[in-house]
């Protein structure tokens, strides 16, 4: 029987466990930082929306031009979307914190969408709204559609694209899909009061949305992802 030096096993265990715990702590710290960044961004957007809503209520005393200039979607909301996608990849789509942030993000999108619709009616301008429904569950076409829409958003900065995870357990999304009769055949795009299912290339999207040619274009070589 050979001698086993138990103390070496114990020291090894303590060192290994310490390394593991440190790795978890570092990872946790980074994720907490990311989540707090997202929360801050959401708070800011939420405040902006509230401010815009208030402005809208005071529309009688405001000019349409003033409101249009204060439209907050575009870069901030897109940036928030990008960060959420990253968190989904890091923490997984089933992570409670990610789901919570995503729900809040979806609500902000819906609020912005409704408000912008109201502004459009009142101020008689005609922005283009795209509601994009995707799934995180084995939907390769959704990934491709995300790339194509991101590209389109870059090309037409005034195009308003709102992306929603179809399977996110959020009553507001259920209501939205109910109102526009969006079926679970993803990816799905709601534009010009019509629903289009399946992957649509950039050229197909341009055919579907002929008003795009009236929008100002801004050619940018790089793109970012709105949703996965």
């Amino acid at each position: 029987m050979r001698k086993i030096k138990v103390h070496i096993y114990i020291i090894t265990f303590i060192i290994t466990a310490s390394i593991f715990i440190s790795a978890f702590l570092i990872n946790n710290l980074l994720n907490e930082k990311r989540i707090s960044q997202i929360k801050n961004l959401q708070d800011n957007i939420s405040l902006d929306i509230l401010s815009l809503e208030t402005q809208f209520d005071l529309l009688a005393e405001q000019s349409c031009e003033n409101i249009k200039q204060n439209s907050i979607l575009s870069k901030e909301l897109v940036s928030l979307g990008n960060k959420l996608v990253f968190m989904e990849q890091e923490l997984g789509t089933k992570n409670e914190k990610v789901i919570h942030l995503k729900k809040f993000y979806s609500l902000l999108e819906i609020k912005d969408y409704l408000l912008m619709k109201k502004v459009t009616e009142k101020c008689t301008n005609s922005p283009i709204f795209i509601l994009y429904f995707y799934s995180n569950n084995n939907c390769r076409d959704c990934i491709k559609q995300g790339y194509a829409l991101t590209r389109l958003a870059k090309e037409y900065p005034k195009l308003r694209i709102y992306s929603f995870d179809y399977n996110l357990n959020l009553p507001a999304i259920k209501t939205l899909t109910g109102i526009y009769k969006i079926k679970n055949r993803l990816p799905a795009i709601f534009v010009n009061k019509q629903v289009f299912y399946g992957y649509k290339t950039i050229d197909e999207l341009k055919t579907i949305i002929p008003q795009l040619s009236d929008l100002e274009t801004e050619f940018i070589n790089s793109t970012t992802t709105i949703s996965d």
């Binding site: 990311r34 960044q37 990008n82 960060k83 990253f86 590209r151 790089s222 793109t223």
Partner: peptide, 15 residues
């Protein structure tokens, strides 16, 4: 689909 993208970086998020 959308061309090459080298601008996907947002500080702490890219790590």
């Amino acid at each position: 689909i959308a061309g090459f993208d080298f601008s996907f970086s947002f500080g702490i998020f890219s790590i």
